[in-house]
Design a protein around this nucleic acid. Structure first.
Ligand SMILES: [Mn+2]
Ligand SMILES: [Mn+2]
Ligand SMILES: [Zn+2]
Ligand SMILES: [Zn+2]
Lengths: 175, 175
DNA sequence: CACTTAATGCAAATCACTTGCAAAGGTGGA
DNA sequence: TCCACCTTTGCAAGTGATTTGCATTAAGTG
C-alpha cells in the first residue's frame, strides 16, 4: 500500500498480450535479441532429451523467442494464435522447459511467474529494473551480486549459493 | 525441479508452528533479538496513529516480537493460542502493520509472503540466506546492493529505486 | 502402418490471499 | 462510568495463479 520497495502490482490486463518486443526502450542486455535463436535450434534441444516436438511446444518456444523480456504465462498464452493449445499445456510446457534449463523463471513479487528463454551461458543469470508504474522492464546485463554471494556463502558455511535480485523504481516516462 | 537458483519450496507443514526462535544457528544481524522491543512500545505506535489496540493485534505483535526470522501468516497464526482470532484477521493486521511501516514483507520465491517486525532504521532493510533443504534462515546484516541501486538508477534514469535480494543455498547441516 | 508412451484438453482441485457483510468491541467524549 | 460511533472481527464466499486426475490424442519408433 505505501510499500517503499513494494511488490510490483500488475494492473489487470495492462501491457499484456499486444506488443511482443518493446517500443524503443533502453535494453542493456546484449544477448537475447528477439528471434535471435532459430526455432530449429530450440526444438533440437527437446529432441536431444527425447522429448516430443509437438505443435504447442513449438508455438510456445516461438513466442518465447520473440520476447526480449520475461513474460507471464498469460501473456505467452495470449500471444499464441487462439485455439492453439490449452492454458494448462503452457504451464506444463514451461515446467518442462525450466527443468531442462531452457527457460528461467523470474519473480517480480506480484503473484505471477515470468519466464525468459535462456540465452547466454551462466544459465542466463541476470537481473531486471522494473517500473512500478507502467511495468516497463529494463534488462540488466551485469550481475552485481556474485562477490557477495561468495562472501555470504563462505561466512555462513553454505554451499551452492545463488541469489535472486530485482530492482524496482519509476522509469523516466513515469516520473 | 532441477532449478539452480530455484524457488524455495516449503515442505508442507515442515518447520512451522513449533519453534519460535531457533535452535542455535548463526545470526549475523545485530538488531531484532527476540522479544527485544516491549509490547507496549509497539502498541503505542498503533495508538499514535489512532488505530485500535485489540486483542488479536496484541497477540500478533507479540508473536512477531518472538520471531527473529520472517514468518509466514500461517506460522504466525499457528503460534497464537488456538481460537485467539481468525486467519483473516491476521492477514488484515499484517496489511495494517505493513502500511504503518511496522513490519516488512519478504518474498522467498515460494508463493507465500513472510513478515518481520521492523527494528532498526532504514525501514529494516536487509537480506536473507535461506537453506533450500531445511528452510533454515540466516539474517544478513549488510546490504551490499545500495551502490548498485544508485548506479542502476542513474544509468537508466529511474527514480526511487529499491531492490529485493535473497540468497539461497545448502546450509552446513544439510550438505 | 501399428505400437507404445508421452502429451494434451477439460474439469475440478489447491493455495494464498481478498472481499462482503453483519455482529462485536475499542475509544473519546458526555 | 456510560454511550454512541466507528473500527475491527468472524464467517463465508470469491479471486487468481497454478496444479492434478483422467480419458483421449498423437509423436516417435521400427
Ligand atoms: Mn531478462
Ligand atoms: Mn530478516
Ligand atoms: Zn546476480
Ligand atoms: Zn539491500
Amino acid at each position: 500500500m505505501n510499500d517503499g520497495a513494494g511488490a510490483f502490482k500488475q494492473s489487470p490486463g495492462a501491457g499484456a498480450a499486444t506488443c511482443h518486443g518493446d517500443e524503443g526502450d533502453s535494453c542493456h542486455r546484449v544477448g537475447h535479441s528477439p528471434g535471435k535463436r532459430r526455432l530449429s535450434e530450440l526444438t533440437e534441444q527437446l529432441r536431444a532429451k527425447s522429448r516430443k516436438i509437438t505443435g504447442p511446444r513449438q508455438k510456445i518456444l516461438d513466442v518465447l523467442r520473440m520476447n526480449r523480456h520475461p513474460v507471464t504465462i498469460k501473456e505467452l498464452f495470449a500471444q499464441m494464435p487462439r485455439g492453439d493449445c490449452d492454458l494448462v499445456t503452457v504451464y506444463r510446457s514451461l515446467h518442462l522447459l525450466e527443468s531442462m534449463g531452457m527457460v528461467k523463471r523470474f519473480d517480480f513479487g506480484d503473484g505471477t511467474a515470468r519466464f525468459e528463454l535462456i540465452d547466454g551461458p551462466d544459465g542466463g543469470h541476470h537481473h531486471h529494473l522494473i517500473c512500478t508504474r507502467c511495468e516497463s522492464i529494463v534488462e540488466l546485463e551485469d550481475c552485481f551480486a556474485k562477490e557477495m554471494e561468495l562472501s555470504v556463502a563462505k561466512r555462513n558455511g553454505f554451499a551452492s549459493v545463488t541469489h535472486r535480485l530485482e530492482f524496482f523504481g519509476i522509469c523516466p516516462k513515469c516520473q
